[in-house]
Deep mutational scan, measured.
Amino acid sequence: MAEQVALSRTQVCGILREELFQGDAFHQSDTHIFIIMGASGDLAKKKIYPTIWWLFRDGLLPENTFIVGYARSRLTVADIRKQSEPFFKATPEEKLKLEDFFARNSYVAGQYDDAASYQRLNSHMNALHLGSQANRLFYLALPPTVYEAVTKNIHESCMSQIGWNRIIVEKPFGRDLQSSDRLSNHISSLFREDQIYRIDHYLGKEMVQNLMVLRFANRIFGPIWNRDNIACVILTFKEPFGTEGRGGYFDEFGIIRDVMQNHLLQMLCLVAMEKPASTNSDDVRDEKVKVLKCISEVQANNVVLGQYVGNPDGEGEATKGYLDDPTVPRGSTTATFAAVVLYVENERWDGVPFILRCGKALNERKAEVRLQFHDVAGDIFHQQCKRNELVIRVQPNEAVYTKMMTKKPGMFFNPEESELDLTYGNRYKNVKLPDAYERLILDVFCGSQMHFVRSDELREAWRIFTPLLHQIELEKPKPIPYIYGSRGPTEADELMKRVGFQYEGTYKWVNP
C-alpha cells in the first residue's frame, strides 16, 4: 500500500466541504435556525453545542446559521458558553472563530407547556436576519415526558411559513410498544414523516454505516452471507464503567431499553437485511423493517440478565456495585447486563442465532459485530482449526478484520490463527472521521433520513421486546451478580454456547 501524504486539518475539512456542497440537498446560502429545546441540560452542553461548534469551526454548516437555545432556566448566552465550552476542545488559535460562533447564538427562556412562551420564541426567531423565511431545525434534547406539549406548541407557534421545518427526537422513544405508539401517533398528527428525525446516534458511527458497503459492494461476501456458512452472529456493546452516581436515570430504563432495543437491534438489521433497491432512505429502511418483521418476540429462556457488584480487589469506582450508587433505588432489580438470542425467521437466516450482548462495568470498552462461520467440513488438521470470524469493530479503534487459519512457519503443516486486517487509523491517516452527532446533524440539514429511525421500524423493535420488558417488570427477577471489570455473568457464556457459538479464547485482536 502506497504511503499517504499527511494533510493538514484545513485540507481534510476542505475535502469534506467539497463532498457536502456538491450535493443538491445542502442549501449552503439559505438562512437556517437550529433550535435546541432543553438548552440547559446535560445532553445540550456535552453533545449538541459542542457538535454545532465543530461543524461551524470546520465550515460545514450553511453560511447563515443561527443557534437558539430554549429552556425553562433563566440563562444568558454567557451562561450557555460557560457550561458548554469546556466540552468544545477549542484551541487558543480558534479564539476569534469561537467569538464568531457565540455571536450567532441567542437564548430564550420559557415554559414547555405555555403557548405564550412559544409565541415569544417565534418572535425572537423572526427578528433574526431573514428569520421569518429561514429553515428551522428543532432538536428535542428533553425528557420524553414533555415531548407531547413541546411538539404541539412548536407546531402551533414556531413553524417557518416559507422555509422547511424538521424536528429531531432523542431516544428513548417511549418505554414499550404502547407508549411508543402513543408518542408516534401524537407526533405524526403534527408533522409529516419526512419532517421527523428520530435519532439513534449509533447509526451515525462510521463502521455501522460501513456495514452496507461491506455487504453490498464486495462480491466475495454475497455468496457466504447466509445460514449455510454463518453459524452465529454476535452483536456486542461493552462499557468498562458503571453508573457513577447517575444511576437514578438509568434505573428508569435499564440496559435493554438503553442499548439493546435500539443500538444493537439497528446493527442487527444492517447485518441481516436484503440488498435495498438503492441507497435512498426509504429503500434502506424498507429492508430493515422486513428483517424486524421476521423476528419473533424474545423468549425468556433465551435471556440472561445481570447486575454488577463491587470488586473487592478493585480501586475507586470498581469497588462499588450498582446498588451502592446513592441515586439507585434500594434493592433495585434493574439489569445492567443483558444477553438475548433472537432468530430472523426467513430463508437466508433460518436457524442462525443472533446474540445481542450489552452491559456496564465490564472488562473493556468495545462495540462490534462478529460473524462466526461454520467449521470446515472434512477436517484434515486433527481438530487444530478454529472457526473463521469476520469482525466489524465499531469502537474504539474502528477496524474490519477476518480471523482465519494460516500455516505456522516451519517444517510442518501446523495451522495457527491469524488475521486479515483493515484498521482505519492506519489505512486512512488523512481522513477526519466525523463524530456520530456531527454526521447525523449534517444529515438533518441535508434532509437525508437514511440513518434515522422510521415509525414502522420503531414499532417493530418495541413489538419484539415489550413482552419481555413487561414480564421483567411484573416478576422482578433478581439479576445474576457479576463482578465489576469482569466479562459479565458466566451464564451468558453458557447461553451463547448452547445456541452454537464457540468461544476459543486463544486469539485476541490487537490494534496495530
Score class of each variant (00 low, 15 high):
residue 7 L to C: 06
residue 10 T to H: 08
residue 12 V to M: 05
residue 19 E to G: 11
residue 22 Q to I: 14
residue 23 G to Q: 10
residue 25 A to G: 09
residue 26 F to S: 08
residue 28 Q to R: 05
residue 30 D to H: 12
residue 30 D to E: 10
residue 31 T to F: 13
residue 31 T to P: 07
residue 34 F to D: 00
residue 43 L to W: 01
residue 48 I to F: 02
residue 52 I to Y: 10
residue 59 G to E: 05
residue 60 L to D: 04
residue 61 L to H: 01
residue 64 N to T: 07
residue 64 N to C: 09
residue 68 V to T: 04
residue 72 R to K: 01
residue 72 R to G: 03
residue 74 R to Y: 15
residue 75 L to N: 09
residue 76 T to Y: 06
residue 79 D to E: 15
residue 82 K to T: 13
residue 82 K to L: 08
residue 90 A to I: 07
residue 91 T to I: 10
residue 91 T to E: 10
residue 93 E to N: 13
residue 96 L to P: 14
residue 96 L to M: 10
residue 98 L to E: 07
residue 98 L to K: 04
residue 99 E to D: 09
residue 99 E to I: 08
residue 100 D to Y: 09
residue 102 F to V: 04
residue 102 F to M: 05
residue 103 A to I: 06
residue 105 N to V: 05
residue 105 N to K: 02
residue 110 G to T: 03
residue 110 G to D: 08
residue 113 D to V: 06
residue 117 S to K: 08
residue 120 R to E: 09
residue 121 L to C: 11
residue 122 N to F: 08
residue 122 N to V: 12
residue 124 H to A: 13
residue 127 A to Q: 15
residue 132 S to C: 14
residue 136 R to S: 09
residue 140 L to V: 09
residue 142 L to Y: 00
residue 148 E to I: 11
residue 148 E to G: 11
residue 148 E to F: 13
residue 149 A to R: 15
residue 153 N to I: 09
residue 154 I to V: 15
residue 156 E to N: 11
residue 164 W to Y: 15
residue 167 I to L: 11
residue 167 I to A: 13
residue 169 V to D: 00
residue 172 P to F: 00
residue 175 R to D: 08
residue 176 D to A: 03
residue 180 S to C: 07
residue 182 R to G: 15
residue 183 L to N: 02
residue 183 L to A: 03
residue 183 L to D: 01
residue 184 S to V: 13
residue 200 D to A: 01
residue 202 Y to L: 03
residue 204 G to S: 01
residue 204 G to R: 00
residue 205 K to G: 02
residue 205 K to W: 03
residue 206 E to C: 09
residue 208 V to L: 11
residue 210 N to M: 04
residue 211 L to K: 02
residue 212 M to W: 02
residue 214 L to T: 08
residue 220 I to D: 00
residue 220 I to F: 10
residue 220 I to Q: 04
residue 224 I to E: 06
residue 226 N to E: 06
residue 228 D to I: 07
residue 228 D to M: 10
residue 232 C to W: 03
residue 234 I to S: 10
residue 235 L to I: 11
residue 244 E to I: 12
residue 246 R to K: 01
residue 248 G to V: 05
residue 251 D to H: 08
residue 254 G to A: 07
